[in-house]
Structures are given as C-alpha cells and as structure tokens.
Lab assay of single mutants.
Amino acid sequence: QLNLPENTDDWTKEDVNQWLESHKIDQKHREILTEQDVNGAVLKWLKKEHLVDMGITHGPAIQIEELFKELRK
C-alpha cells in the first residue's frame, strides 16, 4: 500500500520513484527521473519523447506515460 498524496501535483520526486517502483519500473529508469527532478507536477506533462530524451528506452517510456494517463482518470 503506497502512502502518497492524493493530488499527484503534490508528489515529490521520491513519491514518483515509489509509485514507479510499485509498477515494476526498473531502477535505472527511476533513477533517471529522480536525477532530472521529476516530481508529480512535472510527470503529468511528460510525453514519451521527453522520457526518451532523458535516456529512457522506448518501451519503459511508453509504459510510464500510459501508467500516468491511467492514474489521472
């Protein structure tokens, strides 16, 4: 059970990391997002292209984008 703020805009980069870990996103990809200071407010704007530009491969980038879309519903 994750204990994250209800509003994703309030998520810290550590919260984002924890959420991605719960969805089995590889540590190396989570570390990239942490290094790039991606918090919840930033995550909602990220598209696959942004994630790929940061060095995340296409498969996980699509997965992260789709997971966040599902979360926002």
Rank of each mutant, 00 (worst) to 15 (best):
Q1I: 13
Q1G: 07
Q1E: 10
Q1D: 08
Q1T: 09
L2Y: 03
L2I: 08
L2H: 10
L2S: 09
L2N: 03
L2T: 09
L2V: 04
N3I: 03
L4K: 03
P5G: 02
P5I: 08
P5T: 04
E6M: 09
E6F: 02
E6A: 06
E6V: 09
E6H: 02
N7M: 10
N7S: 08
T8Q: 06
T8A: 11
T8V: 11
T8W: 13
T8N: 04
D9E: 09
D9M: 11
D10G: 06
D10S: 09
D10L: 06
W11E: 01
W11D: 00
W11L: 03
W11K: 00
W11T: 06
W11V: 00
T12G: 05
T12D: 08
K13Y: 11
K13W: 05
K13M: 07
K13D: 05
K13F: 08
K13S: 09
E14K: 06
E14Y: 04
E14I: 11
D15S: 03
D15K: 03
D15E: 09
D15F: 02
D15Y: 05
V16Y: 02
V16A: 01
V16N: 00
V16K: 00
V16E: 01
N17T: 10
N17L: 10
N17P: 00
Q18R: 06
Q18V: 05
Q18N: 03
W19Y: 11
W19I: 08
W19D: 00
W19A: 02
L20I: 02
S22M: 07
S22E: 05
H23T: 08
H23Q: 09
H23S: 10
K24A: 12
K24N: 09
K24C: 12
K24Q: 11
I25M: 06
I25P: 01
I25R: 00
D26E: 06
D26T: 06
K28C: 07
K28S: 10
K28H: 12
R30N: 01
R30W: 04
R30H: 02
E31P: 01
E31S: 08
E31C: 07
I32D: 02
I32T: 06
I32M: 07
L33M: 13
L33W: 02
L33Y: 03
T34P: 01
T34N: 12
T34R: 08
T34Q: 07
T34I: 12
E35I: 04
E35K: 10
E35P: 01
E35R: 10
E35F: 09
Q36G: 14
Q36S: 12
D37M: 14
D37S: 14
D37G: 14
D37I: 14
V38C: 06
V38G: 06
V38S: 02
N39E: 05
N39V: 01
N39L: 00
N39T: 11
N39C: 03
G40S: 01
G40R: 01
G40K: 04
G40D: 01
G40Q: 01
G40L: 02
A41M: 12
A41D: 12
V42D: 15
V42T: 14
L43I: 13
L43T: 13
L43G: 13
L43S: 11
K44Q: 13
K44N: 12
W45A: 15
W45G: 15
W45T: 15
W45E: 15
W45D: 15
L46S: 06
L46E: 02
L51S: 02
L51D: 02
V52E: 15
V52I: 04
V52W: 14
V52K: 13
D53Q: 09
D53F: 03
M54C: 05
M54Q: 03
M54W: 15
H58N: 03
G59C: 09
G59I: 14
G59R: 15
P60G: 15
P60K: 15
P60A: 14
A61L: 08
A61G: 07
A61N: 02
A61Y: 00
A61Q: 04
I62Q: 15
I62F: 15
I62C: 14
I62P: 03
L67Q: 10
L67A: 12
L67E: 05
F68G: 14
F68C: 10
F68T: 08
K69Y: 13
K69I: 09
K69D: 14
K69N: 04
K69A: 12
E70I: 12
E70R: 10
